[in-house]
């Protein structure tokens, strides 16, 4: 197996994700770690809540990782996304990609996170001191 996709309701293990994509024929690993930021447009964020339509989210992530293997010579790809309540500094997403050469790993990692944000049915609610907002819901 060269791909691991998981949606988890427990803290993500960044070191474990990197270990999973390691391979003797890899020349490098590229890792994207998303973190919960403490403010949006200057307004302090108390916490985030993530929700997923899990079977469809897994299916969409499988499409993205398959496209990455078709586009670049990759060795292993891992995507872990967390759901539930996350505090500032916690990690909602980890993407790790190994390849023989770094260009493929960098390009694929960026493609996966950018496409995930556009197509995968996962939603984020920002909770402020005075209210809450589903991100991107309204124009």
């Amino acid at each position: 197996m060269n791909t691991e996709i998981k949606i988890l309701d427990t803290p993500l293990d960044v070191a474990g994700c990197i270990d999973w994509v390691m391979s003797p024929d890899a020349g490098g690993i590229d890792v994207f770690v998303g973190t919960v930021r403490n403010a949006t447009k200057g307004k302090p964020v108390v916490r985030l809540e993530f929700e997923a339509y899990e079977p469809m989210a897994i299916k969409e992530l499988e499409k993205i990782t398959q496209q990455s293997f078709a586009k670049w010579p990759l060795i292993r790809v891992l995507v872990h996304h967390r759901i539930g309540i996350l505090s500032v500094g916690e990690v909602p997403v980890v993407i790790a990609v190994s390849a023989a050469h770094r260009d493929a790993a960098f390009d694929a990692c960026r493609y996966i996170i950018d496409t995930l944000k556009q197509t995968v049915p996962i939603w984020k609610k920002e909770i402020f001191e005075d209210g809450e907002v589903w991100v991107a819901a309204h124009p």
């Binding site: 998303g34 993530f50 997923a52 339509y53 469809m56 989210a57 996304h81 909602p92 997403v93 996170i113 995930l116 944000k117 556009q118 197509t119 995968v120 049915p121 996962i122 939603w123 984020k124 589903w134 991100v135 991107a136 819901a137």
Partner: peptide
Amino acid sequence: VAVIPPVSGG
């Protein structure tokens, strides 16, 4: 069947 509002994962 599901309603999928604008997604915002990551």
